[in-house]
Design a protein around this nucleic acid. Sequence first.
RNA 1: GGAGGCGUCGCCUAGUCCGGUCUAUGGCGCCCGCCUGCUAAGCGGGUUUGGGGUUUAUAGCCCCAUCGAGGGUUCAAAUCCCUCCGCCUCCGCCA
Length: 438
Amino acid sequence: MIDIKLLRENPDAVRASQRARGADESVVDQILELDATRRSSLGEFEKVRAEQKQVSKSVGAAMGALNKAKKSGDDAEVARLQADADKAREDATALSTRVKELEATADEAGAKFDELMRTVPNVVLDGVPAGGEDDFVTVKTVGEPVQFDFEPKDHLEIGEKVGAIDMERGTKVSGSRFYFLKGVGARLELALLQMALDQAIANGFTPMITPTLVRPETMQGTGFDVKHDAEIYRVQEEDDLYLVGTSEVALAGYHANEIIDVTEPVRYAGWSSCYRREAGSYGKDTRGIIRVHQFNKVEMFTYCKVEDAEAEHAKMLAWEEEMLAKCELSYRVIDTAAGDLGTSAARKFDCEAWVPTQGTYRELTSTSNCTTFQARRLNVRERGEGATRAVATLNGTLATTRWLVAILETHQQADGSVRVPEALRKYMGGLEVLPVIA
RNA sequence: GGAGGCGUCGCCUAGUCCGGUCUAUGGCGCCCGCCUGCUAAGCGGGUUUGGGGUUUAUAGCCCCAUCGAGGGUUCAAAUCCCUCCGCCUCCGCCA
């Protein structure tokens, strides 16, 4: 959720952001109007409510005096006080009715306001390219696309040759886009994730193995729409739970409704399976493990002061690049255009690795600066000068199953074996080459 | 799965049976001040969070909500009723 104060004080900033995203600018004026309505109806309700409380309290006092008089047996006094009490009660009843009406009006105005506020995506940061998916800016390109003196095979063919991937049986057991990683494939993924976790720990992240089923409010707080998002798997027959598409969800929810100390950035590295329905991607990336329903990931997640967010974002990008370098991959970094940012992100950098048989760069990492947007929804705050305020949250990918695609293809050799990148060897018992077994 | 108990403003706690100065008690911790060579002790004050209003404005002041969450009953709910969430104990089942 964006900051209503920003929208009130600088509506043009929000309009500009909406324009850059290709989203509706008119919501700004609609919200300003609903905000005014909401505040005036709230004021009215509170005024009458205060009155009602006064009168109601006087009923209490009258009852007390009445009971005292009854005990002392003064009949004339009892009659008089009884009349007072009845009168007060009558007044209170009338006010109570009025309060209920005003409260209903105020609640309605508040609900309308909230509803529209929730539809507004995060305000993009200065420098984010305007436009849609194709309007990204390439920040830099690192390494050259690998050249082969033989015809390179795609990751699945290699994966099968070295006994790393079994798609056919994955499909048999669970359906399309499911797979088995076996033998060196299983080892390679664990090596990659373990290397990512070690790097994260070295950089001050606390390792976390997170829940992968979460409640609707956790999902929603992170910025996902559980009712309409076709990407989310739901477990709803007996339990109202949702399978996460990333451990970001659990890590963002971790400090929900808390006031935390972010004098220094609080960093978590989440290790989890991730689940995505991949609805609407029929026919796209159907071969191999590039687009699958279930994969594993090590994800960085930071809570920090909003002033520190951009610096932290740069660090996350650098850490992602460090991982790519260790895997000896060629890649480019893109600054995602406003219209292609998620709801929560104010800026997003993707690292895309070169995939030889596709002749293109494919996304391996994504790091988003969500500024205070997620924290406001999840109610994660810090103590500031006299008051509390929302913290900033950021996330970034350190490793995923998809990395195996780029690693297998980039480091393949003429006979179909695969050279293991130096940095990964110690995580694979010193193995230097994945040998051909089929 | 069955039966029961519990959830109070950082922590502990009074209040809940029987609704009405509860404007939620007291202690610990923490903050400010006083006192004192220093420290400790002592004394005084403060100490949930969110929202609205007032103000040039941080402050200050006024108001509303907040006793796990949400509904309900009532002039009035921490207190009575319902639903949900969480924690604990016992029994059963599975490992």
